[in-house]
């Protein structure tokens, strides 16, 4: 009897969480231009309009480039930082580690304002590079956490074996260490990409005038009117941010199976 209520409660919680998302996805296929049920028919009309909306396309492009670069830079820095922290035991490793993770703990608004004030102090103007810099700062902790966890589990003697066989430290990294931590590196990169792609708080503070990412574009459009195009854009965002990690997980599993599971 008790279990029945717990199940019911769980169901209600899920409904509360996912119903709005489902509504957005459903309405994005609505033929009518009013956001209301009952739907008058199925159509891809709003996706087509989305495709023809220059502002949105531009925002989408910006987001992709920003996300891609953020992922690339964060992953590279994250891998290097993890190597330094785990393998080379640099002095002050604990402090550095804490500093790298700190951006997760600091509220995003605080981080955003702090970075702006800092730039003001240096009298540097807002730019795309700054936006990228900001995204790198707060995606880096995720990459470091994921990659570090993996690196700790790679036994040191495997690398030592490679070196004893004649591989230099750099060759050892590319032949042994990197392939073994590749799933974590990919996961970290995907994390960085989706976080960057999704982000609005920091982006609103840091973006130079005239540059919009998908979230800030939606935000701007919502201020004028609620257009069904936004539903379609929401659906695309959902597919991207849910689909990419799933794809990543599938690839990681494939890689793991290749090495004998």
């Amino acid at each position: 009897m008790g279990w029945f209520f717990i199940r019911l409660w769980a169901l209600l919680v899920y409904l509360f969480m996912f119903l709005p998302v489902a509504v957005v996805v459903l309405l994005s296929f609505n033929a009518s231009q009013f956001d209301s049920f009952p739907m008058t028919g199925l159509s891809f009309r709003w996706f087509v309009e989305l495709w023809q909306n220059d502002a949105i396309l531009r925002a989408f492009q910006t987001s992709m480039i920003l996300g891609g670069l953020t992922a690339l830079i964060s992953t590279t820095l994250g891998v290097l930082a993890s190597l330094a922290l785990v393998r080379y035991r640099v002095p002050g490793a604990n402090l550095i580690s804490t500093m790298l993770i700190a951006p997760i703990l600091v509220p995003e608004v605080v981080l955003a304002v702090a970075l702006l004030l800092f730039l003001n102090f240096l009298s540097i103007n807002k730019s795309f590079a700054l936006l990228l810099f900001g995204h790198v700062i707060f995606t880096l902790p995720f990459v470091v956490l994921v990659v570090q966890a993996r690196l700790v589990s790679i036994r040191r003697d495997i690398e030592e074996a490679a070196m004893s066989l004649g591989a230099s430290p750099v060759q050892t990294f590319f032949e042994v260490t990197l392939p073994l931590m590749l799933p974590a590196v990919l996961a970290g990169g995907l994390f960085a990409f989706t976080i960057s792609f999704d982000d609005i708080t920091g982006t609103l503070f840091w973006k130079p005038g005239g540059v919009e990412t998908v979230p800030t574009q939606i935000f701007a459009m919502l201020r004028n009117s609620i257009s069904p195009e936004i539903n379609a854009l929401g659906t695309v965002m959902i597919v991207l941010t849910v689909g990419l990690p799933l794809l990543g997980a599938a690839i990681a599993r494939q890689l793991a199976r290749k090495s004998g599971g």
Partner: peptide, 21 residues
Amino acid sequence: VPIHKRNLGLVFQNYALFPHK
């Protein structure tokens, strides 16, 4: 002379084979 230039064979307690090869 660094380890990779010493031409040594090294065998460990835990085998240390490359799991991805």
